[in-house]
């Protein structure tokens, strides 16, 4: 991957939240072209909200986002894969993939060809005429991925796309995404609560967490991942990397080692009391 290219997305001093109440502040990073940045953190830290602010679906409370311009006809600058696939159940698989292409300068035939090409990329070419409800969860999510790739985005936002799937399917789709990255020029922001998933897929991990002094969450650390993408799980540097990220998430006043030991004792006490 070319890390020195001009970034396709820049966030500067971004704060997000609801009703003027920040849940997450001071997010600054660059997304280099063709790279994948994973955003990890505990649930409720504002990962999904951050992703929507980056995409422009939600206005940020502070800071700026530079998104790629809408310059190439026949493409869209960005697209998104959601946690639940959110296919339109009243459309067949092919026309679901065509959704983002409608309104672009493409003929009906071009739309159809484009949809079929990306269905092939996610290995679902034979399912083009099926209704979404007849597909498994993993297949539906692959259609969601094809729909997002079909607009040939410069930036692809992925919001915990594999978290609702079973472990085997999740592994398969992670591998499918690793393979896909060789064929697509899109840069990806990938939100997940799964540290291992972040380590398998990304070039860089942004760790979100509570602020030591309380208040809204912030970026705890940014960790570059320099392992080769192929068979990363088997690499000798993989386990140490995970331990490092886990340590980054654990450090801080609320989740210190002492705190978790205390919590463990407390839990044990609570469970033993009624039976003791």
């Amino acid at each position: 991957m070319n890390h020195h290219a001009q970034p396709v997305l820049r966030a500067h001093g971004l704060a997000v939240g609801f009703d003027n109440q920040s849940v997450l502040t001071d997010v600054t990073f660059d997304l280099p072209a063709q790279s994948l940045i994973a955003v990890v953190g505990p649930s409720g830290v504002g990962k999904s909200t951050l992703l929507r602010a980056l995409a422009g679906l939600l206005p940020p409370l502070a800071g700026t986002v530079d998104r790629p311009p809408d310059s190439d006809p026949g493409t869209r600058p960005w697209s998104m894969v959601f946690q639940s696939p959110r296919l339109l159940p009243w459309r067949r698989v092919r026309t679901n993939v065509e959704l983002g292409l409608e309104g672009l300068a493409l003929s009906r035939e071009e739309r159809r060809q484009r949809a079929e090409r990306y269905l092939e990329q996610v290995a679902l070419a034979d399912y083009a005429d099926r209704w979404p409800h007849s597909l498994s969860g993993g297949q539906q999510q692959r259609v969601g991925l094809a729909r997002a790739l079909a607009v040939q985005p410069k930036v692809l936002f992925m919001d915990e796309p594999f978290s609702a799937l079973d472990a085997i399917t999740r592994r398969r789709l992670q591998q499918a995404l690793v393979d896909l990255r060789r064929q697509t020029p899109a840069a990806i922001v990938f939100v997940t609560h799964d540290i291992e998933e972040a380590a398998v897929l990304s070039d860089r991990i942004i760790v979100l967490g509570d602020h030591p002094q309380g208040g809204p969450a912030h970026v705890r650390a940014q960790q570059a991942v320099e392992l080769p993408l192929e068979a990363r799980r088997d690499h000798s540097g993989f386990r140490p990397l995970i331990q490092e990220i886990e340590a980054l998430i654990r450090t801080g006043p609320r989740a210190s080692t002492a705190y978790s030991e205390h919590q463990a004792n407390d839990t044990a006490g609570r469970f033993s009391r009624p039976y003791g």
Binding site: M80, F82, S84, L88, G100, G103, V151
Partner: peptide, 16 residues
């Protein structure tokens, strides 16, 4: 959620 899908895939104007 469907509104978000519409927004993410460029179908934001009233009639589409």
């Amino acid at each position: 959620g469907y509104d978000e899908v519409a927004a993410a895939f460029g179908q934001v104007r009233l009639f589409p």
